[in-house]
Amino acid sequence: MIQGSIVALVTPMDESGSIDQVSLKKLVEFHIEQGTDSIVAVGTTGESATLDEEEHCEVIAAIVGYAAGRIPIIAGTGANSTSEALELTRRAKAAGADACLLVTPYYNKPTQEGLYLHHKAIAEAVDIPQILYNVPGRTAVDMLPETIARLSVIKNIVGVKEATGKLERYTQIRNLCGDDFALYSGDDATSCEFCLLGGNGTITVTGNVAPRLVHEMINAAMDGDRETALAIDAKLTGLHKHLFIQSNPIPVKWALAELGLIKKGIRLPLTWLTEECYETVRAAMCQAEVIE
């Protein structure tokens, strides 16, 4: 079971929007040095919505290669078309990914039965560990705990990233699915409490900017050390909030550029962080002690 601080990595680009492989390699090394436990390649934060299929698979393969087995790599392979998600998952397995993260189909608003059949079809077609991803704020569909429980009995569906921010969902899913099914927080603001309840880690945006602190906070929470976990989390509250001051990954890419880790690059329809937000994000970075 992959556990701990799992960073939903940005996809670095230059100002023309081309993928910046030099910065991508730098980011992977940075996270390994800082103690990040695992990386998600080409999830929402990695701009999966604006990468074409070839680019999507190229970035996954590159991250797998740069990591070289030192930490597990989870490939984002979800789509609102079952056939597309299945193909991305096949290609991620071929590239050497350790697991796949599959967001619920977005925009077309499937029923709970549709969600079940979608994920069941992919799991049965591709023999790789698969993590469900429920984020109704982006997809307009909420995968209910009962549907997650139905899917949890499929042997290679191994966990869920639960991004509603509702802590009661942890208890509902854990009671239905048991201790062998991994539960990951997909909401940075509640990830500390989620892991104090017994969660297996977080798939984090904040961890892009403050990887060492998020790693230490999540490990303390998973160990049941509430005092330490909450003390570290207090330093991260500004990032948890203000890395979403505009749509993710706009603020986190700006923050990483400020740290000199990536160039100023993002793809339309996303735009660079507007200037009036600079000081707010910068103050959050100071609070987390990643800049002075």
Score class of each variant (00 low, 15 high):
1 M>D: 04
2 I>H: 07
5 S>Y: 03
10 V>F: 06
10 V>P: 13
16 S>W: 12
20 D>Q: 05
25 K>T: 10
26 K>H: 14
27 L>Q: 09
28 V>L: 12
28 V>M: 11
31 H>L: 09
35 G>I: 02
36 T>D: 03
37 D>G: 02
39 I>P: 10
44 T>M: 05
44 T>I: 07
46 G>S: 03
47 E>I: 11
52 D>P: 02
52 D>E: 09
52 D>H: 13
56 H>G: 05
64 V>R: 05
66 Y>H: 07
73 I>R: 01
74 I>L: 15
75 A>W: 01
79 A>F: 07
86 L>F: 09
94 A>R: 12
96 G>I: 10
103 V>D: 12
105 P>S: 12
108 N>Q: 09
109 K>Q: 12
110 P>K: 10
114 G>M: 02
117 L>Y: 11
118 H>S: 11
120 K>W: 03
126 V>K: 14
127 D>H: 09
129 P>V: 05
134 N>H: 04
136 P>R: 07
142 D>C: 12
143 M>T: 05
146 E>D: 14
146 E>F: 02
148 I>L: 08
150 R>K: 15
153 V>Y: 04
156 N>W: 10
157 I>M: 10
159 G>R: 10
161 K>H: 07
162 E>A: 04
165 G>C: 05
167 L>E: 01
167 L>F: 03
168 E>I: 06
171 T>M: 00
172 Q>T: 00
174 R>L: 00
175 N>S: 05
183 L>E: 04
184 Y>H: 02
185 S>D: 00
187 D>A: 00
189 A>M: 08
190 T>Y: 00
190 T>H: 04
208 N>D: 07
209 V>F: 09
211 P>T: 01
211 P>E: 06
217 M>W: 11
218 I>G: 11
218 I>M: 13
221 A>H: 08
222 M>E: 03
225 D>P: 03
226 R>N: 08
236 L>Y: 11
237 T>G: 06
239 L>I: 10
244 F>P: 15
245 I>N: 10
246 Q>F: 06
250 I>M: 04
252 V>M: 09
253 K>A: 00
255 A>F: 08
257 A>C: 11
259 L>I: 03
259 L>V: 00
266 I>E: 15
267 R>N: 03
267 R>A: 08
268 L>N: 07
270 L>W: 12
270 L>P: 08
273 L>G: 14
274 T>F: 09
275 E>T: 13
278 Y>E: 15
280 T>E: 09
284 A>D: 09
284 A>V: 03
286 C>V: 13
290 V>I: 09
291 I>A: 04
292 E>P: 13
